[in-house]
Design a protein around this nucleic acid. Sequence first.
DNA 1: GCTTGACATGGAGTGCGCTCCAGGTCTCAG
DNA 2: CTGAGACCTGGAGCGCACTCCATGTCAAGC
Lengths: 119, 119
Amino acid sequence: MSVYTPAEVVEETGFSIDTLRYYEKIGLLERVDRNAAGQRRFSQEDIGWLGMVRCLRDTGMPIATMLRFAELVRAGDHTIPDRIKLLEEHDRQVQAQIANLAERQSYIHHKISYYRSLL
Amino acid sequence: MSVYTPAEVVEETGFSIDTLRYYEKIGLLERVDRNAAGQRRFSQEDIGWLGMVRCLRDTGMPIATMLRFAELVRAGDHTIPDRIKLLEEHDRQVQAQIANLAERQSYIHHKISYYRSLL
DNA sequence: GCTTGACATGGAGTGCGCTCCAGGTCTCAG
DNA sequence: CTGAGACCTGGAGCGCACTCCATGTCAAGC
């Protein structure tokens, strides 16, 4: 079972060390193990969870919602239906974001075409 | 040439009155005409520009960049090539956002499938 | 004539998500 | 033995994009 130093997790996940400590402080990341000197040693599971966090964060989920999801995960397997519901709801929002961006993008394309027609 | 009261512009554009005043204050919206009593009377052009602002804002363009675009528009027709460049660059960023969302979405789909497999 | 409500202004406050800082500990290369 | 550097903590600060507030003016309906 491999462990990771803070520097390695920064490298691996793209989160800054400050962000990692912040996530731990607010409970988005469960209390990370420490070595004898009190330094963080992240587990493989931590890395996996951070992958999920990155996905949710980068698709615009607010921290408060990620926190609810984290609590469901910690509460055990009986929350799996709730987790599915939460992710499905988020999925719909992501879908809406994509649709919205695509629509706005066509406006931008029209504007560019219009500008080009003036040259 | 029609004019619009603040309430009408709120209705039309979806921006709050506070946001409209904020945009005017920072120069994202050019000084809006006033009636004798000092109340804003928006022009058709203002409405059109606000449509553009909404598009750019909703596709994630920072205010500082919208401000640069606004300055190009005000500077006259010789800036059209620059406007095209700016919009094209933004278009690429929108494209990247869409691609990124789609990729993250497939991760979410996998996670949902995985959870379903546990039921 | 009076009330109501839409609007004005300048400036302070808010919420989110970090990000930075001061001051301290521990480890390791030279 | 020393100095550098990775890490620790609690707490303050920041950037963005608004949002709210106190106070005041004007216009229209009853």
